[in-house]
């Protein structure tokens, strides 16, 4: 397929985000929900960006739709960067993979897949659903 050869820079986890990346190793996408106002947010933080309440991890379905995308033609190889709106609400930056780049469209239903970054840490990306 289109962008399987791209070297994916490895994310550098920290104490605030380690559970997110640990879960990615198990093929699970985590979000954070505020204990006080019950709203989800992304990227995950220790304190809710909407009310500064304490937050807790929960697993996302992994389903979403493409909010916007662009094919970076100047890169070798070209790749599809995107914002994906998860069915739980938050919109997150990612890549669209396992699809010919010219077939990527806004509104497409996508599902999370995990691709290894350059140090082996899996990162969540999205492929066409079903």
């Amino acid at each position: 397929m289109s962008d399987q050869q791209r070297t994916i820079p490895a994310p550098v986890a920290n104490v605030e985000t380690k559970p997110y990346w640990d879960a990615a190793r198990e093929g699970r996408l985590l979000l954070k929900r505020c204990i006080a106002c019950h709203q989800l947010h992304f990227y995950p933080r220790a304190l809710c960006p909407f009310c500064y309440g304490e937050t807790a991890w929960e697993e996302a379905s992994g389903n979403g739709r493409i909010y916007s995308f662009s094919i970076t033609r100047k890169a070798a190889p070209p790749y599809a960067i995107a914002f994906v709106t998860l069915e739980e609400g938050p919109t997150i930056m990612s890549n669209i993979v396992d699809i010919p780049l010219d077939e990527v469209r806004i509104g497409q239903r996508v599902r999370v897949v995990f691709k290894p970054s350059e140090d082996g840490q899996p990162v969540p990306m999205f492929a066409p659903a079903g």
Partner: peptide, 16 residues
């Protein structure tokens, strides 16, 4: 850490 793995550059950010 939530963006650099995906290859954001100035051009593709404005492109989106």
């Amino acid at each position: 850490q939530f963006e650099t793995p995906y290859g954001p550059v100035i051009a593709n950010m404005y492109a989106m």
